[in-house]
Amino acid sequence: MTLNIPATTKRVELHTSKCTNQRIRKETLDNISSYTNKSNEEILARINELNKEWDIERLLETNAAAVVILGTVLGFTVNKKWFVISGIAGGFLLQHAIKGWCPPVPILRRLGVRTSSEINYEKEALKEMRRNNAEGTV
């Protein structure tokens, strides 16, 4: 028996609609092309923004942690039935870790939240643009 576990770098994209992936890819390419005639300082400022951009993994982990904390607090203070929320959030997070999908993924992707690979693609393209500017090969 083999488990069908997608590669970490592609698992979210595999569970995102083709249309959404294309839109995110187009937005990323548009971001890159908008810096074609910009100074190295402006490009560096964008790279620094990208270093602070939250990828989908970070957003999901934060969301799941908040739900687990909320469910636990409510379980101890209101009713033990609230502990179910913590279990569900943990289950979804485990499913995401293995398969790359959980209920918030399609929503977050439609909102334009990118994977770390997508963010890094833009950063690397901008770094190359800066190198070319410094060498005068624009």
Rank of each mutant, 00 (worst) to 15 (best):
A45D: 02
V73E: 03
T62E: 00
S34P: 06
P106Y: 02
L126W: 02
V67L: 10
V84D: 00
I119K: 07
C102G: 07
N4T: 14
L50A: 07
L111H: 09
T36N: 08
F92P: 01
L108E: 06
R23G: 01
G136L: 11
T20Q: 03
K80G: 07
E118N: 02
K26R: 15
V68S: 04
T115F: 02
I107M: 14
K10L: 15
A7Y: 10
L44G: 01
V67Q: 04
A66W: 06
N48W: 03
L74Q: 11
F76V: 15
L70Q: 05
T16S: 07
V12W: 01
P103V: 02
T28M: 08
S39K: 10
T9P: 03
I24Y: 01
E13G: 10
E27H: 08
N40D: 00
I85L: 13
F92C: 07
L50K: 14
K26L: 14
V84T: 13
W54V: 13
P103D: 00
N132L: 13
Q22E: 07
S86L: 05
L94D: 00
D55A: 11
K10F: 12
N79E: 05
V105M: 12
N40G: 05
N51Q: 11
H96T: 14
A64P: 02
V113Y: 02
S86N: 06
A45E: 00
K18L: 06
L29S: 12
D30S: 15
L44M: 05
V84S: 08
K18C: 01
C19V: 13
R11K: 15
W82F: 15
E128C: 12
L94M: 10
E135W: 12
S116V: 06
H96R: 14
I88T: 08
I47K: 06
S39P: 07
L111D: 00
T72S: 09
K26V: 14
R11I: 03
F83M: 11
E122N: 04
N21F: 00
T8V: 13
R130S: 04
V12F: 05
K52Y: 05
D55V: 07
E118W: 02
G71T: 00
T9L: 14
W82C: 13
I85F: 08
G136Q: 07
I69P: 08
E57T: 13
K10Y: 10
T9D: 11
K80W: 05
K18S: 03
V113Q: 01
G91K: 12
I85M: 11
N133R: 09
G112K: 06
M1H: 11
R130C: 04
K52L: 14
I47E: 00
G100T: 09
A45T: 10
I24D: 02
R11Y: 04
I88D: 01
N63G: 07
L3F: 11
H96D: 09
K52V: 15
L60V: 07
E124I: 12
E57N: 14
T77L: 13
K10A: 14
